[in-house]
């Protein structure tokens, strides 16, 4: 049991596909303290949404709820008239490949003779853009990528994954008056 656990932890840590990856890009020299209010806006036209997400009412609710919570804890308030910031998001699902190392590290096959296993999985990417409403320039983009195998049809798992992704994304959001360079 313990060995199996260790193998699973190792697989999760090294496999890549099972872990969420989160990052962001930010405008150089951004002074976030200039902004106080925000509003939701429509996403840019380029990405094609996956119908499994765009037709899922929970998806929108969970994302917007999670983002609103993060922005509220950072002192931003929602404003329907002339907001400082516009926020939009889109999610994309695409097929990715990974190479499993479980067999080679596991019990049933040890050593260099074990063949690696190449497998395909579905990965979801949630991208959130924060736009300066006056200049219409994106000032920050955050994203989270993770496998969505077994997640799309399971509301609890989808909600947890969105919550985790948005929380980790906004942990990278620039903070006012700290002079922190990213």
């Amino acid at each position: 049991m313990r060995t199996l656990q260790a193998v699973l932890i190792f697989a999760v840590a090294s496999g890549g596909c099972a872990t969420m990856s989160v990052s962001s890009h930010v405008e150089p020299g951004l002074d976030i303290s200039r902004y106080h209010t925000y509003s939701w806006s429509a996403p840019d036209a380029l990405p094609v949404p996956d119908p499994r997400l765009s037709e899922n009412p929970f998806y929108k609710d969970h994302i917007e709820g999670a983002v609103e919570k993060q922005l509220a804890t950072r002192g931003f308030s929602m404003a329907s008239a002339s907001p400082d910031l516009l926020v939009h998001y889109h999610a994309v699902i695409d097929r990715r490949i990974d190479v499993s190392r479980i067999n080679r590290e596991g019990l049933d096959c040890v050593g260099p003779d074990c063949p690696p296993e190449v497998f395909e999985y579905e990965a979801g990417t949630l991208v959130i853009d924060v736009v300066d409403a006056k200049t219409n320039r994106v000032i920050w983009r955050g994203w989270a990528q993770d496998t969505v195998e077994g997640v799309l049809n399971n509301e609890d798992r989808l909600a947890r994954q969105i919550e985790q992704g948005v929380t980790r994304m906004f942990a990278r959001f620039p903070r006012a008056a700290q002079g922190e360079k990213r």
Partner: peptide, 14 residues
Amino acid sequence: TPTGDPRLDSNPFF
């Protein structure tokens, strides 16, 4: 044009 990666599509920083 689309890049094939949602992180880079319409990414003004890039």
